[in-house]
Design a protein around this nucleic acid. Structure first.
Length: 814
RNA sequence: GCGGGCGUAGCCGAAUUGGCAUAGGCGCCAGACUUAGGAUCUGGUGGGCGCAAGCCCAAUGUGGGUUCGAGUCCCACCGCCCGCACCA
């Protein structure tokens, strides 16, 4: 249906770009660098229109920034470890490597078909020994720093996938991947100590001014810093026993009427041992422990807990308060113990009501009459019933005053807590990078020496997990010798979370073939930080936080010279169809193949750009592609059909079309810079419409050539195949991709005659063409003198005239 | 519950700093070309009046407010979306 053979053209130019290595980059280029990266994908096999949208954005920027004069690096790689390949292997028996590499090959083809260009010499894939060797090497550096450690921990366990999940992989109490309700189990697990970096990860968010604010806010909430105080409490009649509580509201300490320990709190055992509460408490603890997250969530609002037969002393007033355990207090946050102030905490209030505990008010709400509260009051107020602190404003005066008092008495101090937990990186899975640790009966836990890396993933027969890594069933892998004593030892059989792989791949791109180090300092410092990072908002807190953490650790190890990896971040919207995100599992994917055949790659790209604001979700529409295909067809015909431009002197019409071209150029340049690709395409369409009219009414040869060249230059990053072909056919000997992005002529963009709007009482009543440099007095005079305006002002008094020449005059009458 | 965002034509959307609301596309209507058109081109496409040039009016989820002037700023409400979710 198109009037040109786009398939031939696409093949031709894709081959030229690759064969001539047009988009390959080196570090010795004198131009300023621009490092342009899209989050490397999991090789799922088939790209759909939703994926193509993202690749189109990245590719547009690669081509645009090159034309803008930058030394652009746009690499591509694969997040190729992970569960799907392993699950497929369990089902089909195909080795995950074979499965993965077939898909990588397929996706590479599909990217090339779109016309997306990369420096393929820098391709990385997480599953290759050449890559995971360095993932293991980096693990060892973390290990040396005490940033990688093993501990027994209650973990999220997916009974279907038979593996441990990170907190982030648990969605509404269910496994993110398969939806199975998650259970809790105790296992020995490897962690990265990201909490050591919590404050810096929080502080440096402020420097990321080219990140979407919502992503910064999400990370801020995820890190979850809170300020308060912790202090020691003694158990009544047991001077040997004490525990620490954490609170953000030390100013409410006089309102404490009970304390709550997490069921897992170590002191609980001691307190109930041999008492009448022993059996009942243990039954409760067992129940809570075994409960899945789903079950816990379903009981929200009904806070379960019990008195355990002991009392603690409130250090503020020396009153004994009962000790409870309850499931709403978590061992993993703060100290695992809280002072409960029912009057001023909604959870404590609910719990106190349930157990008939007193609810004394210590922060008086404004206008409080001394009566009981119907609900917890958490707002500002005046301290009452609080001894020497009565009358202070809370929390702003009360918190520091009480905290100081606790410090002076030597029982407490100011304390900062983070919601962020350490990053659980071990997986009881096959398809990941083995953790390079050996367990020796004599030497204990021993790091595999650097020169013995990589610890290779062996080929195995049975991938099915049985509560431990499939690697544990491979004696040739497990049995080894201790690097320190040379005796018999066993390898660690857990593998690493794929988020470890993806926390540094963008560093490897800068020096992908290095066999001495993961990357050389000079190369990483040349390319990094990434100037433009593009990816889905679903990675707002996971990948993006981990990658920031890695960068900071490697900075502290003096391996690189920057603190933040991603200068600018862009998160694109999803493509939806039938009201849902396009995905294989929903069965609503739009496969690109028929569209390539019918409309060509450029029409698809252009529609992906035109479909709506890049940050917003968009709905796929077949009609939309037809529209952009029609547009390209018109551009093609303008460039190839005889339009009979003639040599003649320049007329006003010719100047007008040149002005239109330059205004469009200014608009498109600005729009690309602010990621408004949809309006950039609209501007090109509008200009093309004007150009068709111009040609129909008789074109001047020189003018037409000039403005048509501009059109092709602007189209080059968006619809590269057609633009390149037309550039060649219209007689240019250079390649369009290596041309400079044109700069607009300011004289042609500035309008010398503009339409001035004349309003009466804010309503538009007339318009008049005026010189752009018209003076205020002259503009007002002209406005008032217009016949049409007179008919509105006649018989009324002009009270005020707002003049904004040359755009607007507003006459206020009354 | 807490945090963030969105609501404009029949549909997708534009309006960048408070200044001509509705650009561009889709769809629809009419016409031209044509054996034919689901190709292409031209014109139209909120409402009212008018043969017409044109004139007038209404409208940006709802209701208020600030302002000479509000899609844009403020307040309340309605609806939808996203993130977090017992973090003391």
């Amino acid at each position: 249906m198109a009037s040109y053979d786009f398939t031939d053209i696409e093949h031709k130019w894709q081959k030229i770009w690759e064969d001539q290595r047009v988009f390959y980059a080196t570090e010795d280029d004198p131009r300023p660098k621009f490092y342009n990266v899209q989050m490397y994908p999991y090789p799922s096999g088939d790209l759909h229109m939703g994926h193509l949208r993202n690749y189109t954005y990245t590719d547009l920027l690669t081509r645009y920034q090159k034309m803008r004069g930058y030394n652009v690096l746009a690499p591509m790689g694969w997040d190729s470890f992970g569960l799907p390949a392993e699950n497929a292997a369990i089902q089909t028996g195909i080795h995950p490597r074979v499965f993965t590499e077939q898909r990588i090959a397929k996706m590479t083809e599909q990217l090339k078909r779109l016309g997306a260009v990369y420096d393929w010499s820098r391709e990385v894939a997480a599953h290759t020994p050449e890559y995971y060797r360095w993932t293991q090497w980096l693990f060892l550096r973390f290990y040396e720093q005490g940033l990688a450690y093993k501990k027994n921990a209650p973990v999220n366990w997916c009974p279907k996938d038979q593996t441990v999940l990170a907190n982030e992989q648990v969605v509404n109490g269910a496994c993110e991947r398969c939806g199975t309700p998650v259970e809790r189990r105790d296992l020995e697990q490897w962690f990265f100590k990201i909490t050591d970096y919590a404050q810096r990860l929080l502080d440096d968010l402020a420097t990321l001014d080219k990140w979407p604010e919502r992503v910064r806010i999400m990370q801020e909430n995820w890190i979850g810093r809170s300020e308060g105080a912790e202090f020691t409490m003694h158990v009544a009649d047991r001077p040997d026993l004490q525990f620490t509580v954490y609170t953000t509201r030390p100013d409410t300490i006089f309102g404490m009427t009970f304390v709550v320990l997490a069921p897992e709190h170590p002191l609980v055992e001691t307190l109930v041992e041999g008492t009448e509460y022993d059996a009942e408490v243990h039954a409760f603890i067992d129940q809570v422990r075994r409960e899945s997250e789903v079950e816990r969530l379903s009981t929200e609002g009904d806070k379960r807990g019990m008195f355990i037969g002991a009392y603690a002393i409130n250090p503020a007033n020396d009153e004994p308060v009962p000790i409870f355990i309850a499931d709403y207090v978590l061992m993993s946050y703060g100290t695992g113990a809280i002072m409960a102030v029912p009057a001023h905490d909604t959870r404590d209030f609910a719990f106190a009501k349930l157990h008939g505990l007193p609810i004394p008010v210590v922060i008086a709400p404004p206008g409080w009459d001394g009566s009981d509260l119907d609900e917890a009051y958490t707002g500002d107020g005046i301290m009452v019933n609080s001894g020497q602190f009565d009358g202070l404003r809370a929390p702003e005066e009360g918190v520091p005053a009480v905290t100081r008092w606790l410090e002076e008495r030597g029982i407490g101090r100011a304390s900062v807590q983070f919601r962020l937990r350490d990053w659980l990186i071990s997986r009881q899975r096959y398809w990941g990078a083995p953790i390079p640790i050996v367990h020796c009966p004599n030497c204990g836990e021993v790091a595999v020496p650097d020169d013995q890396l990589p610890v290779l993933l062996p080929d195995i027969e049975d991938y099915a997990p049985q509560g431990r890594s499939p690697l544990a069933a491979v004696p040739e892998f497990v049995n080894t010798t201790c690097p320190e004593c040379g005796g018999a030892a066993e390898r660690e059989t857990d593998t690493m979370d794929t988020f470890v792989d993806s926390s540094w791949y963008f560093l490897r791109y800068t020096d992908p073939k290095n066999e001495q180090l993961p990357f050389a300092r000079d190369k990483v410092d040349y390319w990094m930080p990434i100037d433009q990072y593009i990816g889905g908002v679903e990675h707002a807190v996971l990948h993006l936080l981990y990658a920031r953490f890695f960068t900071k650790v490697l900075h502290d190890l003096d391996m690189l010279g920057f603190q933040e990896p991603f200068t600018a971040l862009f998160t694109q919207g999803m493509l939806t169809k039938d009201g849902a995100k396009m995905s294989k599992s929903k069965g609503n994917v739009v496969a690109p193949d028929p569209y390539y055949e019918r409309y060509g790659a450029d029409a698809i790209r252009l529609y992906e750009l035109f479909i709506g604001p890049p940050t917003d979700d968009a709905v796929w529409s077949d009609r939309g592609v037809e529209g952009t295909a029609r547009f390209l067809d018109r551009v093609w015909r303008l460039g190839t059909e005889t339009t009979d431009p003639v040599d003649r002197d320049e007329e006003p019409r010719d100047v007008e079309i040149r002005k239109a071209a330059h205004r469009t150029l200014a608009k498109v340049t600005g729009d690309i810079d602010r990621f408004a690709f949809n309006t950039a395409v609209a501007a090109l369409m509008e200009f093309n419409n004007a150009l068709m009219t111009y040609v129909r009414e008789g074109a001047r040869k020189e003018t037409f050539t000039d403005v048509y060249d501009l059109l092709l230059l602007m189209l080059a990053p968006m619809a590269p195949h057609v633009a390149h072909e037309l550039w060649e056919r219209t007689g240019h000997e250079t390649m369009l991709a290596t041309e400079s992005w044109p700069s607009f002529d300011p004289a042609l963009v500035v309008e010398d005659v503009v339409t001035m709007v004349i309003q009466v009482n804010g309503k538009v009543r007339d318009r008049v063409e005026v010189p752009a440099d018209i003076g205020e007095d002259e503009a007002v005079e002209m406005a008032i003198g217009r016949d049409k305006i007179r008919s509105w002002t006649e018989g009324k008094q002009i009270r005020k005239v707002i003049a904004r020449p040359p755009k607007l005059i507003n006459i206020v009458v009354g």
